Simulated assay, not measured.
Amino acid sequence: MKRTELRRHTPLRQKARSKPVAAPAPVLVQPYTERKPIRATRPKMTPLRKFAKGQPCMVRLPGCDGGGETTVLAHYRLAGYCGIGVKPEDDAFGAWACASCHNLCDGRAKLKDWTYEEIRLAHAEGVMRTRVAISREAA
């Protein structure tokens, strides 16, 4: 195989002449000022979430401790109404759940003989029980 000599089709660019570099401008250090907190779209602790503390667990999955001080308002995820990492705008779809039931509903813990659908059904029933208990408290 015959090799041909390599040639450039365009000439090389001329290197830019180096200009004297000026000293960098001094950096002004500003004192730390307290920033305004980012305003939430709704309060973190709504009255229904506060009211859940001390209430009995309404989800009642195996391993439930019955509620009390570990009870929180566990939000039920409903397609089209909320998503991953997004809680519903109001607390209408929430069940009073103890810490162990809340972990099972959110998927942080698993039950050996229970399917995902069965846990969601127990959570949905807990939402309905919670709504009935809240309406009885209000009456």
Rank of each mutant, 00 (worst) to 15 (best):
G85Y: 04
E69N: 10
D113S: 07
R108V: 06
L121C: 05
E89A: 15
A124P: 05
L111I: 01
E118G: 10
E89Y: 05
K110D: 05
I119N: 02
G83S: 14
E69S: 15
G80N: 04
R108N: 03
T70H: 11
T71N: 13
K110W: 05
W114R: 09
A74W: 04
R77G: 12
P88D: 01
A122V: 01
I119K: 09
G83Q: 12
T71L: 12
C82H: 01
Y81N: 05
C101I: 03
K110A: 08
I119H: 02
H102V: 01
T71R: 10
C101E: 09
Y81A: 05
H75Q: 14
D106L: 00
K112H: 06
H123Q: 12
A95E: 03
L78D: 01
V72A: 07
A92D: 09
A99Y: 10
D90E: 10
G83M: 09
A74E: 14
T70A: 06
Y81H: 09
L121Y: 10
Y81W: 10
Y81V: 10
A92S: 15
H123C: 07
A79I: 06
Y81P: 00
L78K: 13
P88V: 01
P88H: 05
G94A: 06
A79S: 11
R120E: 06
K87C: 07
N103C: 09
D90N: 11
E89I: 07
T115Q: 03
L78F: 11
A97R: 14
A92T: 14
C105Q: 02
C101K: 06
I84Y: 07
E69Y: 13
S100P: 13
A92G: 08
L78G: 02
G83L: 03
A79G: 07
G83C: 11
Y81M: 05
A109W: 02
A74Q: 14
N103P: 00
A109E: 14
C82E: 10
G83R: 14
D113K: 14
A97P: 00
N103A: 15
A95D: 06
N103H: 09
D91A: 02
A97S: 15
L111C: 02
L121A: 14
D90S: 12
V86F: 11
C98G: 08
E69M: 12
G85F: 09
A79Y: 07
G80K: 07
A109Q: 08
E89F: 08
R108L: 06
G107W: 08
E69A: 15
E89D: 10
D106V: 01
D106E: 15
I119M: 06
A124F: 13
I84H: 10
A97E: 01
R108T: 03
Y81D: 02
V72S: 12
L111G: 00
D91V: 00
L73D: 05
R77P: 04
T115F: 01
G80V: 04
G94N: 04
